[in-house]
């Protein structure tokens, strides 16, 4: 659909298309969630700069840059950072 539309002046008619760029490749440490410990508070979800923690509190490794904010802020230490 996007291809048929004319795009001029560097307009981008493909909302959310940075999803094509998998920033997960930047990562050296990855967050791993322990669902047993998780209390579902949503703090990791709210703080994620890349909006790539699902509402089930699973990181989306396609985009997670491994910043570690979720692990740092988890009030029950349910997330640990593990080397890739």
């Amino acid at each position: 659909m996007v291809k048929n539309m004319k795009s001029i002046g560097a307009a981008v008619r493909d909302p959310g298309s940075t999803r094509r760029n998998k920033t997960g490749s930047w990562r050296t440490f990855k967050p791993v969630a322990d669902k047993e410990k998780c209390i579902g508070c949503g703090i990791c979800y709210l703080y994620c700069p890349d909006g790539c923690i699902t509402l089930e509190y699973d990181p989306d490794y396609d985009y997670c840059k491994g910043c570690g904010i979720c692990a740092e802020e988890c009030p029950v230490k349910a997330i640990t950072m593990e080397r890739e």
Binding site: I8, G9, A11, V12, P15
Partner: peptide
């Protein structure tokens, strides 16, 4: 070619 419409978002 250029508009800002919430029903058809464009950057």
């Amino acid at each position: 070619n250029a508009y800002l419409r919430t029903e058809d978002p464009m950057s």
